[in-house]
């Protein structure tokens, strides 16, 4: 008989319920996905034109045990083989977060398994580690429905927000512009699709803010799109929605990519990670690839679409680091809708 080599793996169960996806996942060693189950409620919320918090919470309580069970079954593990449970504690919708947090606490308590609360954005950033090992220092461009941030990491588990939006998140601006153009919810993907077909021929502003600032602002751009449409209407002119979408997208992407490029230089980053739901945006992906592609000294990581939108594998990945660094949450862990990334 050959020599039996025992390798010690770390298995983390992740649970994510911060918005309208009920998700659970098992990740090995913080890098390999064994299962990644997402039960989306998008069909339920479509008729309301956005996520209704009470309805999201109702779905989560109906789905949560099904989803966690499926994650364990697909991973081929029993709960006894899980080393830690990671759950999104914030930010997000409080009533929705509460379901994941309490389900996680119940499992942790029942089997005396360590529990770690995870910041949702830390999760989005760590989705990248499921694609490629992180190299520090790094920068992450986080773009989602609720967030637009540039985050600097000098090592695992350390986050410094060097720039953030002062008003609307990029994803929010996408949804509002989409609504103005009469596109269905969620509007982001529709704008992206239209933009691919149009030309950025409409003059729209770029909000650079003060010299040296890494902050963002998209509310002025959003108003400008609305005004442009309104004025054209009054003059009886037609603006091609494809061109307007392309112009809007061009403005958003130019600001995001230019600021990311400057930050990468200043912070001497080894990697640039794209994170958050808007990372699914084709236009943004293309521009980042053109800018940072194979040419430079920096490595660009863009996770596949399934890891950009909300999922629990990213929470398990981020939770693995917290667990390995000895961080623990008690059974008084609560949903924290305004949790800061630190």
């Amino acid at each position: 008989m050959g020599e039996l080599i025992m390798t010690q793996h770390t298995f983390v169960l992740g649970i994510e319920t911060s918005c309208d996806e009920t998700a659970a996942s098992v990740v090995r060693d913080g890098t390999q996905i064994l299962s990644n189950v997402v039960s989306s409620q998008i069909e339920s919320h479509k008729r309301f034109g956005g996520v209704v918090p009470e309805i999201a919470s109702r779905h989560h309580v109906e789905q949560v045990t099904y989803v966690v069970e499926e994650a364990l079954v697909q991973a081929g593990l029993t709960i006894k083989e899980i080393d830690a449970i990671a759950v999104t504690e914030g930010p997000g919708l409080v009533g929705a977060l509460i379901i994941g947090v309490n389900a996680a606490k119940a499992i942790a308590f029942a089997h005396n398994i360590p529990l770690v609360g995870v910041h949702h954005i830390a999760g989005h950033i760590y989705a990248n580690r499921l694609v490629k090992e992180m190299k520090f220092p790094l920068l992450s461009l986080v773009v989602s429905g609720g967030h637009t941030e540039l985050v600097y990491m000098k090592e695992h588990g350390s986050f410094e927000v060097i720039g953030e939006t002062r008003d609307d998140a990029a994803g929010e601006a996408y949804d509002k512009v989409a609504r103005t153009l009469g596109l269905p919810y969620p509007g982001g993907p529709h704008i992206d699709r239209l933009a691919q077909e149009g030309k950025p021929s409409v003059k729209l502003p770029r909000a650079w803010l003060e010299e040296g600032s890494y902050d963002f602002s998209f509310s002025g751009l959003k108003s400008s799109v609305i005004n442009t449409l309104h004025n054209a209407e009054q003059r009886g002119e037609e603006i091609d929605p494809k061109d307007l979408a392309a112009s809007f997208q061009e403005s958003v992407i130019e600001v995001l990519v230019t600021k990311a490029e400057r930050a990468v230089k200043e912070y001497k980053a080894e990697q640039l990670l794209l994170a958050g739901g808007v990372a699914a945006n084709k236009g943004l992906r293309q521009r980042l690839e053109e800018t940072f592609g194979d040419a430079g000294s920096i490595e660009l990581i863009i996770p596949p679409l399934s890891l950009c939108t909300d999922n629990a594998a990213m929470i398990a990945a981020a939770g693995t680091i917290s667990f390995e660094q000895g961080k623990r949450s008690g059974y008084a862990l609560n949903a924290n809708p305004g949790l800061e990334l630190i």
């Binding site: 919470s57 949560v64 045990t65 966690v68 309490n102 389900a103 119940a106």
Partner: peptide, 19 residues
Amino acid sequence: SYTGVRIGVTLAKTLAWTL
């Protein structure tokens, strides 16, 4: 209370499922 009921039901069904 919607939230109150959900907390109890979530704890109860998750404990029952996992045990």
